[in-house]
Amino acid sequence: MSIQHFRVALIPFFAAFCLPVFAHPETLVKVKDAEDQLGARVGYIELDLNSGKILESFRPEERFPMMSTFKVLLCGAVLSRVDAGQEQLGRRIHYSQNDLVEYSPVTEKHLTDGMTVRELCSAAITMSDNTAANLLLTTIGGPKELTAFLHNMGDHVTRLDRWEPELNEAIPNDERDTTMPAAMATTLRKLLTGELLTLASRQQLIDWMEADKVAGPLLRSALPAGWFIADKSGAGERGSRGIIAALGPDGKPSRIVVIYTTGSQATMDERNRQIAEIGASLIKHW
């Protein structure tokens, strides 16, 4: 067993022997301040990774656009098919120029040779490549099948209805392509620590998230040296922004954090800054 596999296998073990965790309302004060600064709703939840206990939450059962955070769930569904012998990570998928959609920095470079399922998941999570996500959605049967996968996990809230990039439209009061912070946090925890996926697939999923290259201005910008984070960000229309993450000190994750916002007129930089400040408060009061 590799060191990384050992780390993920012992996530519940280490967490069980940690000192009790206590909620700190100071972080919620910052979440509410972010709402004021952005002029928009902000949803927040913080779960203990081992027990699933909610440590703090704000608007945990209000719907927010998922945006690209759905790509972690998508690759979880792909990995479940791999575990069941219905898919192979090494299978190569070929596609054409007509398949390319807006923001496809990886797939646009491989029109000639195609990409493997493993490479597509890596591109979808680490670079948020939209064509990679659409190609992977095709392998599982489309958005409705991802929703069905989530329902089978016990998540009857999260739903995907459309493809990239239309799913980022974020129309107010439109339930399409949305989740709730509580539902997303619980589902992410199941994917990373539950028995739904094999140990190898859980490790692969967290490795992809740990290698995320496009979430630097968010929670990662607030992390002290030595902290662990595996995350996936999302951005959408109407001032929408979000991030889902597993993080913790001492090089291992111990909490799940989900943050979503929508309806702001603020710039992307300002949305990023507010999420980073929430992260800084979380870490300060850990």
Rank of each mutant, 00 (worst) to 15 (best):
K30L: 08
V31I: 09
E102R: 06
D36H: 09
I229H: 01
A133S: 08
R118P: 05
E87M: 11
P253N: 12
D269H: 13
F58Y: 13
P165M: 10
S68P: 00
L55R: 11
I93M: 06
N272G: 14
A225Q: 08
R189W: 06
E195G: 13
A230F: 01
K252G: 10
P25E: 10
L73R: 03
L73H: 12
V72N: 02
A84T: 12
E175Y: 13
P143D: 03
G236A: 13
E46Y: 14
E164M: 00
V106E: 15
P65H: 04
W208G: 01
E270F: 05
Q88I: 15
E35D: 05
K144M: 06
A245Y: 01
R220K: 14
G154V: 04
T186K: 13
C75D: 01
I278C: 03
K30Q: 07
S57E: 07
E108H: 15
D231K: 04
E175S: 13
L199Q: 07
P249G: 06
E145R: 11
I125N: 03
K32R: 11
P217H: 09
I93V: 07
G263D: 11
A266T: 10
V258L: 07
L136Q: 00
F70V: 14
P249Q: 10
G114P: 04
L146N: 00
D36Y: 12
M67G: 12
A170W: 06
L135N: 04
G76A: 07
A215G: 11
A148V: 07
A276Y: 07
M66S: 04
R91W: 04
L192W: 06
T186F: 15
R238P: 08
M127A: 10
Y260F: 13
V29P: 04
D212M: 03
G85S: 07
D48V: 05
I283E: 05
N173S: 11
W286A: 02
E35A: 14
T116A: 14
S240K: 02
V106Q: 15
S80C: 12
T179A: 03
Q88G: 14
T262K: 11
S128E: 00
K213N: 08
A200S: 09
K232M: 00
R91T: 13
E169G: 10
Y95F: 10
I243M: 15
E277S: 07
D177N: 03
L28R: 11
K144A: 08
Q37E: 08
A246E: 05
T193H: 15
A215R: 05
A124N: 04
T178E: 03
M66N: 01
T107W: 00
E237N: 11
Y103V: 09
H151G: 09
R162C: 14
L49E: 03
N168G: 11
G242T: 01
D36W: 11
R92M: 10
D250E: 09
T27G: 04
D250C: 08
D174N: 07
T138Q: 14
G85D: 07
V257A: 14
A124I: 05
E195K: 09
L160V: 06
P60W: 14
H285C: 09
D48A: 05
G263M: 10
L137N: 05
N152V: 11
L199W: 09
W286D: 02
W227L: 00
D231P: 04
V29S: 14
L282N: 03
L199F: 14
D155K: 00
H151K: 07
E237C: 14
F64K: 00
A211S: 07
V214W: 06
F58L: 15
R202D: 03
H110D: 05
P143V: 08
L120Y: 01
A133H: 02
T262Y: 07
Y95R: 00
N168H: 02
L223P: 02
M67Q: 14
M127W: 14
G90C: 07
L205I: 11
H285Y: 07
V157E: 12
T107Q: 02
P143H: 08
L223F: 05
E145N: 07
E61V: 11
I243P: 01
V29L: 12
N134S: 03
L137D: 02
W163S: 08
T187D: 14
H110T: 15
L47E: 06
G154K: 11
A211E: 13
D207W: 14
E56Q: 07
C75N: 03
D207E: 10
G216P: 06
D113Y: 15
Y260E: 00
V257N: 03
A183F: 14
S221Y: 08
A225D: 13
N272Q: 13
L136F: 00
V258S: 05
E61T: 11
S240T: 08
L136E: 00
I171E: 15
E164P: 00
E26N: 10
T131V: 15
A170G: 08
E62M: 09
D174L: 03
R271T: 10
K109H: 10
R176S: 11
V214Q: 06
R238T: 10
K71I: 01
S57P: 01
A266V: 08
K32T: 13
I278T: 03
S254G: 09
I45H: 05
F228I: 09
I278S: 02
L191W: 05
L89D: 05
A211I: 12
L191A: 07
R162A: 10
L219Q: 03
L150V: 14
T178I: 04
G76M: 06
G43Y: 00
V258I: 12
T138M: 15
S68I: 04
D207Q: 06
A183K: 15
P253G: 07
E169N: 09
L79V: 11
Q203A: 06
G251H: 12
E119Q: 08
E166C: 11
V101G: 07
P217K: 15
L136M: 11
G76Q: 02
K213G: 05
Q88D: 15
I45S: 15
I140K: 03
V42L: 12
M115A: 13
I54R: 15
G263L: 13
I256H: 00
Q97K: 10
A276C: 07
T147R: 07
A200F: 13
R273P: 02
K30C: 11
K252P: 10
V214P: 07
P25A: 08
I171M: 14
V106Y: 15
A230G: 10
L219P: 05
K53G: 14
L192F: 14
E277G: 07
V78S: 03
D161F: 03
T262E: 08
D36L: 13
F64G: 01
W286C: 02
T112Y: 14
I229N: 00
E175T: 12
D83W: 02
W163K: 06
D36V: 12
R118A: 09
R271F: 04
V78K: 02
L192V: 06
R118V: 10
T158S: 09
I54T: 15
E87W: 08
P65C: 03
T187Q: 05
R63K: 11
M209A: 04
Y95P: 04
L247T: 09
V82Q: 13
S128Y: 01
G154N: 09
T126A: 09
M67N: 12
R238Q: 08
R273V: 11
E164A: 01
D231A: 12
L120K: 00
G234H: 00
R162H: 08
S221H: 10
R59K: 15
N173T: 08
I54F: 15
S80Q: 15
E102N: 11
A170C: 06
H285D: 10
T116Q: 10
R238L: 12
M180F: 07
F149C: 13
G154A: 11
R238F: 12
V258K: 01
Y95H: 05
P249S: 14
Y44N: 00
L28A: 13
K190S: 15
E46R: 04
V258W: 00
R81N: 06
E210M: 13
M184Y: 11
N134G: 02
N152I: 12
L79G: 02
A123V: 10
P105C: 03
A124C: 15
A123P: 02
M153W: 07
N168Q: 10
T198F: 07
V72H: 00
Q274K: 09
M180R: 10
A123D: 03
L38W: 06
V82P: 01
F228Y: 06
G52W: 05
A34M: 10
V106K: 14
D177K: 01
D36I: 10
